[in-house]
Design a protein around this nucleic acid. Structure first.
Lengths: 211, 211
DNA sequence: ATAAGTACTGTACCAGCGGTGCACTTCTCA
DNA sequence: TGAGAAGTGCACCGCTGGTACAGTACTTAT
């Protein structure tokens, strides 16, 4: 883990983003006030506008940071699993298990996904933020799609299985799982859904190897 | 179809709810202003507060109506499919196909789910609205779970398949599929995800019947 | 025809919010 | 020690949600 040394300004900016992320995931962007953020961060309104041009600028920074972090997490997961096996199917299944374990180890229910949150509030954002949101999902989807293609080269998928849809399903399961886990307040829901998806991948590619 | 005759007041109320639903799904509840609703509905602020005690009351009405409507849609889907076959597995698969077809026939991308939208903004609502949201998801999940149990009685599920998780997966796929379809602006995404889920159900219960 | 609701309108008002502008100060680090 | 980074303080604007309440037009049962 590289612990970046932050300048004072960067630290304040990060603190504001942390507070904003938490608030946005709980109340939505529109209901999150600059007033409450600066009160919690302990600075003045002028201080806030020193760091962000306006609220839209905050949204953009929030989204960029979130997407970047998550790409890194997924990368890391698959890099680690690739170190354990050369088989693309096994590697993918191990990566999903790592992912599920990580989700299961969270102290509380998953805090939520900024991309999903913004998706349901996109008309209050500028065009570039909506594009950024799409790019985030597309990057995620591409990481999975490329791996499923590798798997499909070696193991012919069973009838009815479409690789593209299977790749998108992973993202859908995570986003949907977060919503279920939050709405029902069931902490283990998300990890279980990821494991259910993992089982589908197994069934989709393993010819008839029954344990 | 029972076309209810609405009194003038009820009609206005419905008009406000229609406008609010559309706006909330696009901008979020917090960013939806009463001002814009009354402007579009062609009445005054006093008129709005005649129908709804406050904004929270509007949220509650919105949610109740949405959940009610969707329960009816799912019911209808499975009732129609049950008329075509006695086999619970075939019935469920036909129901899912109906559902996917219905989604594919929508003129635009799916407008979004109020429950999911509220889930990402729940801290601005009162306790009872959050509970209502959970009840909505639970009702949906229960409708599917009971059917999967029926299926599992007749067809033993394959190794690794958990009935509860499979039931929740249906909801997760739909909620996640809506997010993908909106974020990527891909109209056919949601229906494809439902069909992918349907395929998983097939694989999960059909022993080794390969077409 | 009339009376009792129902479904509003009009007006006045308040606090909180996002946002702007600008002069000023303090802190940090090379 | 000096320059730029990281703020503070204050004054101000328009919009929004929300409250309060008096008045009015439309509808419908008797």
């Amino acid at each position: 883990m590289d612990v970046k040394v932050l300048s004072k300004g960067e630290a304040t900016r990060e603190r504001l983003l942390d507070l904003a992320e938490k608030a946005v995931l709980q109340k939505g962007f529109g209901a999150t006030t600059i007033e409450e953020l600066i009160a919690a961060a302990g600075l003045t309104k002028s201080g806030f506008f020193y760091h962000f041009r306006d609220k839209n600028d905050l949204a953009q920074a929030l989204l960029r940071r979130y997407i970047q972090r998550h790409n890194d997490i997924i990368d890391d997961m698959f890099v680690r699993s690739a170190e354990l096996t050369d088989d693309p199917l096994q590697g993918f299944l191990i990566g999903l298990k790592f992912f599920a374990d990580m989700l299961a180890d969270l102290p509380n229910t998953h805090p939520g996904c900024i991309v999903a949150s913004f998706c349901y509030q996109d008309q209050q954002f500028s065009r570039d933020i909506r594009d950024l949101n799409g790019d985030g999902i597309r990057a995620w989807r591409a990481q999975i799609h490329v791996r499923l293609e590798e798997i499909a080269k070696r193991y012919p998928p069973r009838a009815g299985v479409e690789i593209e849809a299977l790749a998108d399903m992973c993202t859908a399961i995570v986003e949907g799982g977060i919503i279920l886990s939050r709405t029902l307040d069931e902490k283990q829901m998300l990890a279980r859904q990821v494991m259910a998806y993992r089982n589908y991948v197994k069934l989709a590619f393993e010819a008839r190897v029954e344990a």
